[in-house]
Design a protein around this nucleic acid. Structure first.
Length: 313
DNA sequence: CGTGTTTGACCAGCGC
DNA sequence: GCGCTGGTCAAACACG
């Protein structure tokens, strides 16, 4: 199993640079004493209910836009998947049969090309077959491997991927095919948790770190605490790296995002019929929302966003 | 003083 | 068998 995916460290839910969602609107959080305080002004019951209705409308609007975003994402995902399928069918067999374990490692790094095409989570189709052919004697069930591409600031050398879990670094190594060091982490939240994580900067894009998760957490994720804990500088992104990670990529500036958008607008055949379009959207949305991991990741991302937005006391 | 990080040493797998 | 490489260990170190 090998799942590649993209995530912005801030887990920005906005897919494009123009922030259409009203997520950054001034907060109208209910205060502890029951009355809403907007910009320090206490509201009467009437105003309060009005504000609540307004808030509800806003949330509904937001919900609608999120749904649209999800649908758009599903569309592009589907289009990319079919493109990948086409490509995979065209690739000559020899390219699919590297024999060495370490070759596969480097070829996995070459999978960085994936994000140039905005392909999310599809390297598994090749690498899974690869692994199963390549290492028949090795336990295939041994580890679930997932890969997450994380955009960070290029100047940030900490190799910290904020995924909501606690990690203890136990090693660092400079590998042959990448001048930037690779850091090795173990999950330290539960002593018995077998999950390991490798973090290395992309050789192509220094602002991108590739986090490779091995294994599955045998515990619940730690509660999303305040972002000041540990080394997290911004709100900790909450995604579940265990298993076939369904990582959300709503990065607004990363290459995959823009390429996805480009692919959406250019290479994807137009779905002219609104019925067909809606049907496809529903199909994809259904299949996605049926995945508990996806919904969990989505919920975590949204809640994380809300936490970030909650006013400082 | 406890916990986490750093970093050189060591080990195992693989190719030649 | 040897060398190369990735992965892990563990002592030293840093930090709160």
């Amino acid at each position: 199993m090998d799942t590649s995916s993209w995530v912005d460290t801030s887990l920005d839910l906005n897919p494009s640079s123009d922030r259409t969602l009203p997520l950054d609107t001034p907060k109208k959080e209910p205060s502890g004493n029951g009355n809403l305080i907007v910009f320090g002004k206490k509201l009467s019951k009437k105003e309060e209910s009005g504000a609540l209705v307004e808030e509800l409308n806003r949330v509904n609007e937001e919900n609608k836009k999120l749904t649209e975003m999800l649908a758009a994402m599903c569309e592009s995902y589907n289009a990319l998947q079919s493109q990948l399928t086409n490509l995979m069918s065209k690739i000559p067999e020899k390219e699919l049969s590297p024999s060495k374990k370490r070759k596969s490692e480097s070829s996995n790094n070459n999978n960085n090309d994936n994000y140039n095409f905005g392909i999310i989570g599809n390297s598994e189709s090749s690498s899974t077959d690869e692994d199963s052919c390549k290492k028949p004697k090795e336990e295939i069930i041994k580890d679930k491997v997932s890969r997450v591409y994380v955009r960070t600031e290029a100047s940030d050398t900490s190799l910290v991927v904020k995924d909501g879990y606690q990690w203890r670094k136990y090693g660092q190594k400079v590998t042959r095919d990448n001048p930037s060091p690779r850091a090795y982490f173990k999950c330290s939240f539960a002593p018995t948790c077998p999950v390991k994580k490798k973090v290395q900067r992309s050789i192509d894009d220094q602002s991108v770190v590739i986090a490779t998760y091995e294994g599955e957490h045998n515990h619940l994720p730690p509660p999303q605490m305040e972002p000041t804990s540990g080394s997290s500088h911004r709100g900790s992104a909450s995604l579940n790296p265990s298993g076939p990670t369904m990582t959300l990529d709503f990065g607004k500036t990363n290459p995959s995002g823009s390429d996805v958008a480009r692919i959406c607008s250019s290479s994807q055949p137009k779905m002219d019929s609104p019925q067909v379009r809606q049907y496809l959207v529903e199909q994809m949305a259904t299949s996605l929302t049926k995945d508990p991991k996806f919904t969990a990741a989505l919920a975590a991302a949204i809640s994380g966003r809300m936490f970030q937005q909650s006013p400082v006391e």
